[in-house]
Each structure stands twice: as structure tokens, then as C-alpha cells.
Amino acid sequence: MLLVKTLREMEYVAASHIKDAIGDVEIEIRPSGFLGLLIVHCDESLKEKLEEIPEIETIIPVLVECEAKLDEILSKAEVVAEKVKGARTFAIRTKRRGTHDFTSLDVNLDLGDRIRELTGCEVDLNFPDKAVYVEIIGKRAFIGVIDGSEERKKYTPEKVDSRKLFGKISFVQMPYLEDTKAALEIGERIGRAAQAFEIKELIIAPHDYVNAFELEYFIKGVRRGQIARYKIQERAYAREVRKVPVFVRDLYQTARDKRRKRNVLIITDPTGRQISDVKEELVRRIRFADEVVIFAGSRVGIPKGLFRLADFVIDLAPYITFATEQTIPVTLSALLTVYEEDEEARGVIKSL
């Protein structure tokens, strides 16, 4: 038996191609009404043929099927352990669909403990030798074991851990004001971007008196965008997610406070130099900095007087002015790119 995952609404298309590939086998389409799922009643050896079907996202050979009860799932630990034995590490990947009196985390912890006791293997969520999939579909639970090499890894030892860079970036954003509807919308996009990159902090920094109610809408948008992204991260990541702190501080005082010996101050502005012209010095300073502080304007740019306090004034795209909500992703992506290039050139793909 194979558990097959597709994009939603692609189940019937995939089922048709499966039958063309391996014959008229029994296929449960959208079991218990859940989209994006197929249960193919066939021999595991036919898995290779299904891998040629692009409409299929994931294929999990089913080792055992049982009732979707925690005790029942745990009772299969010995069977699962036989498949895991011989590996150094393993991970439990649980996806629960429907209403139950236990959580996916309960399965991960309890089944993981049982398998660890039975095999002596250690848990490694990122690079396991074996991955145990527990797919819970309504009242049924399906358990399969695949080699870790078969997983499409989001993280590999050869990649730079971008969190080490973003985790020391303080982003100072002038608020978008005047139009409350636009302030709410732009604030939401900025909050989502700041949380997506999990930066050290976001500082909302007006440079003068501002309308309190306009600022209220902007901050409300930041909060709304942050929460929306944070909830997605909690569901998507196997690790703990950090909620980005958000502060309000006068722009000039922020610049004074942040101008310390081991901090790097960066201003993004069309009058600055191209990042390619300063990347060697920029990366060297970033690598040894305690904090990287980036200032970004809004409907008006950063006041020119602050340029004297900056270590770098950078024009990320000559002859192009970015929209306010694009500044965080564009700036951080550019910094990560030059940092990765430097790490590769030095032959060091590790933390800062």
C-alpha cells in the first residue's frame, strides 16, 4: 500500500495517471474527504513507476495501518523499530487530519521515545538517516519509514544557516502614514516580512511628530502581519519559532543608541554606493559585528544628517526605488547573498 500526496484538486488527475502507469488498481481518492490524498492499494515495488508522475508530490510506503488512537499507534513501535534499526538517527513526522484526543506533538514525543528505547538511535529532525511518517486521516493512521536521503531537505549542512545572520539584524523602519487604510496594509506587509526573516528586532522610528491615530493603524498592521506569519511558521517548522520584538523609538535617538563600536549601521538610499562596490568590507564588518542595524525610509527617505553616522550607505538597485514594504526582503536577501559568496570563497559554510 502507498500513501500518495498531491496538490489539492489534483487527486483525480493523479489517480488517472497512476492507473495508466501500473494498471487498474484500487485507489481511495480523498479518503475521509481530505483533499490532496490518495491511498493506492498496490505493492511497494511499484513506487518507482509512480515517481515519474509529476502530479504526485510525495509517496510514502505504508508499513502498518491502525486506528487513529495514540495507544494503537504506540503499539506499532516494535514493527517500526525493525525498519529503523541499523540507522544512527531518525525523526518522526506526524501529520494529523481530523479531530482527536491527542496532538501531533504527542505522537512525535511518545513514539519517538519508544523507538529510541528499542533501537538506541538518536533523534535528528533535520538530517535523519530514517524518517518515520505517521499520517493520520480521520479514524485511520498510516505509518511508513523512508530513508532520510529521500526527503526533500530544506536544510543541509552545505547551506549557510541564514538565521545566524538575520538573528543579529535590527531593522529600523520609518512608519508609512497619512492614509490610514494604506498604513494598515503596508504595516501588515512589513510585519509579515520582519517575522518571516526572524530578525533580531523591528524598530518603528518616526523622525518628528506624527499623527497618533495614523501611527496606530500602521502598528496595528505590523502586528496583524506578524501574527499571521508566525502562525504559519509554527505549523511549518519542526523547530521553535521566535516572535520578532517590535519597538517604537525616535529615529535620531535610535541612531545614537545603535552607534556602538561593534555595531554596523547601514542606510539604504539611492544616493549610496552599489553593494558590489563595498561587499568585501561590508561582509567583513558584518561577520564581526554584535548587531547589524539597517535604516529604511518610507514615503520620505532617511534624513541626510544620519548619513554621517552610517558605516555604509547602499543603493541596492540603481535607478530603481523600492516600495516601502519591499525593503526588508530585498535588503536582507542582498546581504545574505554577499555573505554566502564570502563564506563559499573562504571555504567556511558554518555559523558567524
Results as ranks from 00 to 15, higher is better:
residue 2 L to K: 05
residue 4 V to F: 01
residue 4 V to R: 02
residue 4 V to C: 02
residue 10 M to C: 09
residue 11 E to R: 01
residue 11 E to L: 01
residue 14 A to D: 03
residue 14 A to Y: 03
residue 15 A to S: 05
residue 16 S to V: 12
residue 17 H to K: 10
residue 18 I to S: 00
residue 20 D to Y: 08
residue 22 I to T: 08
residue 24 D to G: 01
residue 24 D to S: 11
residue 25 V to N: 06
residue 26 E to Q: 07
residue 26 E to V: 09
residue 27 I to C: 02
residue 33 G to H: 03
residue 35 L to I: 05
residue 37 L to F: 01
residue 38 L to E: 00
residue 39 I to Y: 02
residue 41 H to M: 06
residue 41 H to K: 12
residue 42 C to D: 04
residue 44 E to D: 11
residue 44 E to L: 10
residue 47 K to L: 14
residue 49 K to M: 07
residue 51 E to S: 10
residue 54 P to A: 04
residue 54 P to Y: 06
residue 57 E to F: 04
residue 59 I to F: 04
residue 59 I to L: 10
residue 60 I to R: 03
residue 65 E to A: 11
residue 69 K to S: 09
residue 71 D to G: 00
residue 76 K to E: 10
residue 78 E to P: 01
residue 78 E to R: 09
residue 78 E to H: 06
residue 82 E to N: 11
residue 83 K to Y: 12
residue 86 G to C: 03
residue 87 A to R: 12
residue 89 T to K: 06
residue 91 A to D: 07
residue 93 R to K: 09
residue 96 R to V: 06
residue 103 T to L: 03
residue 104 S to F: 08
residue 105 L to V: 10
residue 107 V to K: 02
residue 108 N to A: 07
residue 113 D to Q: 12
residue 116 R to E: 14
residue 120 G to E: 11
residue 127 F to W: 14
residue 133 Y to Q: 10
residue 134 V to W: 03
residue 134 V to F: 08
residue 138 G to P: 01
residue 142 F to N: 03
residue 142 F to R: 03
residue 144 G to E: 04
residue 145 V to P: 01
residue 146 I to F: 07
residue 146 I to L: 10
residue 151 E to I: 15
residue 151 E to P: 00
residue 152 R to G: 08
residue 153 K to A: 10
residue 154 K to A: 13
residue 156 T to G: 09
residue 162 S to I: 15
residue 163 R to C: 08
residue 166 F to T: 15
residue 167 G to T: 11
residue 173 Q to A: 14
residue 173 Q to M: 13
residue 175 P to V: 12
residue 179 D to H: 10
residue 180 T to N: 11
residue 182 A to R: 15
residue 188 E to N: 13
residue 189 R to I: 10
residue 190 I to Y: 14
residue 190 I to A: 06
residue 191 G to I: 08
residue 193 A to K: 12
residue 194 A to K: 10
residue 195 Q to Y: 08
residue 197 F to S: 07
residue 199 I to D: 08
residue 201 E to P: 02
residue 203 I to A: 06
residue 206 P to W: 13
residue 208 D to M: 11
residue 208 D to W: 13
residue 209 Y to R: 15
residue 211 N to M: 11
residue 212 A to V: 13
residue 213 F to S: 15
residue 222 V to G: 04
residue 229 R to H: 11
residue 229 R to N: 07
residue 230 Y to K: 04
residue 232 I to V: 14
residue 240 E to M: 12
residue 241 V to M: 02
residue 241 V to W: 04
residue 247 F to W: 15
residue 248 V to R: 12
residue 251 L to C: 04
residue 252 Y to I: 07
residue 253 Q to S: 09
residue 257 D to I: 15
residue 260 R to N: 08
residue 262 R to C: 07
residue 265 L to D: 06
residue 266 I to R: 00
residue 270 P to T: 01
residue 273 R to W: 05
residue 273 R to C: 01
residue 275 I to A: 03
residue 276 S to Q: 14
residue 282 L to R: 05
residue 287 R to P: 00
residue 291 E to L: 14
residue 293 V to S: 08
residue 299 R to E: 15
residue 301 G to D: 05
residue 301 G to W: 06
residue 305 G to W: 13
residue 308 R to F: 08
residue 309 L to Q: 12
residue 309 L to I: 15
residue 315 D to Q: 05
residue 316 L to T: 01
residue 318 P to N: 05
residue 319 Y to F: 13
residue 323 A to P: 00
residue 326 Q to P: 00
residue 327 T to Y: 02
residue 330 V to G: 02
residue 330 V to M: 09
residue 331 T to Y: 07
residue 331 T to R: 07
residue 333 S to I: 13
residue 345 A to G: 05
residue 349 I to K: 14
residue 350 K to G: 10
